[in-house]
Design a protein around this nucleic acid. Structure first.
Lengths: 209, 209
DNA sequence: GTATGATTCAAGCGAACGTATGAAACGAAC
DNA sequence: GTTCGTTTCATACGTTCGCTTGAATCATAC
């Protein structure tokens, strides 16, 4: 086994517990206990519970953001006018890929993203940095080129829809065990279903006012 | 003014605070203080904090469920085979209509729904009763008739997508004030955008395996 | 070996938490 | 006016919270 490294063990434990019980619902005592570390280790390594949450959020969202950015770069390097489907895949794909664990670590990371996006704790402000806004703006511009007739407001709505579908999906799979189909949605199928669903949605003609 | 009625004042205050800060992030002390009631009133009227949350959730979701059910009834009374667009509107519409307050009460109710759907507190299990499952099953059957080629799993995925989009929308409008378009999304426009978005998404051809 | 900086530890602080309790205040019936 | 069931009240209990502290432990360099 590699170095236990208290700091990252705390990060791992915090990621899991924050994802499962939310920010307010997780105590640093529970985190340090799961991590096998001392209670004071959080204060020593991160400063406070809120700062720990920030570190967890940064570690989880940074690779996703980087992948989204890189995907758009390669897309734009090939053609100045990617299709809506390509943009949707480049934007939403990393939200599925960031969960390589398949089952355990995957669902946990996904859950954490939802929690970051939806947790009402005041500390949630500032969990996502300006990098997220930058990549979102770039995708917005690319989508606007691919969907000329759409008003900026409706385009923002559709981009929020992408985030909503990708992030909430697995969450509800876990919560409501899907009456009617017993096995949880396999990750690969969900990815394809989401891209079909979202490409059709984003490509819809503008709403007539 | 009508009767203050401690019990409903507690329900109102709890709805607001649960929506703003989540379940774990809200103390019954804050609720009773906002309601102008005594701390022990929660225990007397509802039994416990978890039971209070259940009452809040029930009061918020029941009219939505009833409207969804009634909408499907009138639709099926007219024709045995409604279109996807009609089904989407009957299913998703009440999630927008349940917020008649326009601004304050509306966004709050919407926020509460999101919180109910996504709060990771263990107490969240059981907040929604079997009535929700029943109406979902009925819509599932209707959608299955309108979308013959779709596998049950993918159809469940798309119905989860409807819930995701409708519930997460206003949430993120409030959190990230939509860089680029300053005014928050007006409710009526969001409703139409959502129906356009979702009808196109649900109507998409089945994902090729 | 010993000094030094980094890390971990047990213990405790004050505050806030959910809940319980028994006494006061209230309104309607007699 | 007295009684009785309902509702409100002040208060307290035991627990857990986030955070701090000072001593103990460790690794490394001299």
């Amino acid at each position: 086994m590699a170095t236990p490294d208290t700091r990252t063990q705390i990060l791992d434990a915090a990621e899991q517990l924050f994802a499962e019980h939310g920010y307010s619902g997780t105590s640093i005592r529970a985190i340090t206990k799961l991590a096998g570390a001392n209670l004071a280790a959080v204060g020593y390594h991160f400063g406070s519970k809120a700062d720990l949450m920030g570190a967890v959020a940064r570690r989880a969202t940074e690779p996703i953001n980087a992948a989204q950015c890189a995907g758009l770069d390669t897309l734009l390097a090939r053609t100045p006018d990617p299709t809506v489907g390509e943009l949707v895949e480049a934007f939403a794909g990393p939200l599925f890929d960031a969960l390589p664990g398949g089952d355990e670590g995957g669902a946990r990371r996904s859950r954490l993203i939802v929690m970051i996006l939806s947790d009402p704790a005041e500390a949630a402000r500032g969990w996502t940095g300006p990098a997220e806004d930058t990549v979102r703006d770039r995708y917005f511009a690319a989508f606007a080129r691919a969907l000329p007739g759409l008003s900026p407001q409706e385009l923002w709505f559709r981009m929020r829809g992408i985030l909503a579908v990708t992030s909430v999906d697995r969450l509800q799979v876990h919560q409501h065990p899907t009456p009617g189909c017993d096995s949880p949605t396999p990750g690969e199928a969900a990815r394809h279903w989401a891209l079909t669903f979202l490409t059709a949605a984003v490509s819809a003609p503008p709403t007539r006012p």
